[in-house]
Amino acid sequence: MVLSFVLLLASMNREYVNTFLSTKTGNIACQEKFLEPLKDEAKFSIFYANKYKWKRQIDEAVKMWLNGRLPVWLNNLPQWFTPEKMSRIPDDLVEDETLLLRIWTEQVQRILQGRRDSFVGELAQSGGEVEAKEGGGEDGKEGEGEQ
């Protein structure tokens, strides 16, 4: 067993040996991840963690960052800012009620858009299948010609 552990430490990338000796707690790891100078998307992962792990210590910092960045995200709608992400934002952290309303509206709109797209997609697919059935063998030839 000792040999296996030594082999593991010897064959792994050296810079990760410290993770086997780390005394960091879950709370500190969670808070550090937010406080590091990372991109918004990475910082946003704080809302995926249990709030007891960070709220008491860095609540104000999170609130400031969120209220500062929220208008930018809502105006630019970056790709990562999905309805799923929007649903993770705790309402009590958003100070501006109009922003909160915009989040809800945007969330609903994007969900409806998603459903509409998938419905249209399904319709197009079923329409294509019907045409294929009706067209029979001729369709195959047409297809080849188009290509």
């Binding site: 086997f20 005394t23 879950g26």
Partner: peptide, 21 residues
């Protein structure tokens, strides 16, 4: 060893446990 994560057991505690085992 995935459980050496601070969100699980923690690196030091896991290694210490392995030694004690």
């Amino acid at each position: 060893v995935q459980f050496r994560s601070p969100q699980k057991i923690g690196g030091a505690y896991l290694s210490f446990g392995l030694g004690l085992t």
